[in-house]
């Protein structure tokens, strides 16, 4: 009607045929953060690169925490090197699984109480039947984190003897950490 059509700037309304194609994303474009290490982080990154050598496929970092991506089959070796080598990563601070839909990523945050440095190891697993060797023999803390990842994401950890459900109960079907697991809308049951 007038020039100030409220719909002017927006993408066309989705028809039934549009939804079959790639979903149109509304809103501002996605910005990817620039990852930058500070001085301390650079030093840790150097140490990490020295320790891992050719094991590291990929490396970057943010602030004081560098990360390195290793092959899933080599993760245990890489972790062992980090623990016993010059880095002295004696604490498994955090371990988590991330569901990137096409793959599952395991992230290990390591911490050294002697050097006061953090570093992150990452490993990509296939979305179907993810499996990675256990780090329980390196850090006690691994056992519960692994059981949790097994509950919520269905990751298998050969080498961890006790894989009984930790957070969920026996007989729970599915892995609720995955993006494909539905969350309920309110309903009476």
């Amino acid at each position: 009607m007038t020039e100030q059509d409220p719909l002017a700037g927006q993408p066309e309304a989705k028809g039934p045929e549009a939804s079959a194609e790639k979903p149109v994303r509304h809103g501002p474009p996605i910005v990817v953060a620039e990852e930058q290490l500070n001085e301390r982080g650079e030093q840790t990154a150097e140490q990490l690169a020295r320790t891992l050598g050719a094991l590291a496929l990929d490396a970057a970092g943010r602030d004081d925490t560098p990360w390195a991506r290793v092959d899933a089959s080599q993760l245990h070796r890489a972790a062992e090197k980090c623990r016993d080598g010059e880095m002295g990563m004696d604490m498994l601070n955090l371990m988590l699984a991330v569901d990137w839909v096409d793959r599952i990523q395991m992230i290990y945050v390591l911490y050294s109480t002697t050097n006061n440095r953090k570093a992150i190891l990452k490993a990509d697993l296939p979305a179907e039947a993810p499996k990675i060797s256990s780090v329980t023999d390196l850090w006690e803390a691994g056992s519960w984190y692994e059981r949790e990842a097994h509950d919520l994401f269905g990751v298998e950890f050969p080498g961890n003897s006790d894989m009984s459900p930790l957070l969920l109960y026996e007989g729970f079907e599915g892995h609720p950490g995955l993006k494909s697991y539905p969350l309920n809308d309110y309903e009476e049951w």
Binding site: I30, V31, R62, D63, N93, L94, V109, K118, I120
Partner: peptide, 23 residues
């Protein structure tokens, strides 16, 4: 809307080291 990326930050809780890994 933050830029895409991931951070790990932690702080001292009464119980210990409370970390948040945010993607």
């Amino acid at each position: 809307r933050p830029p895409a990326g991931e951070v790990f930050s932690h702080s001292e809780n009464p119980r210990g080291d409370l970390g948040v890994y945010l993607i």
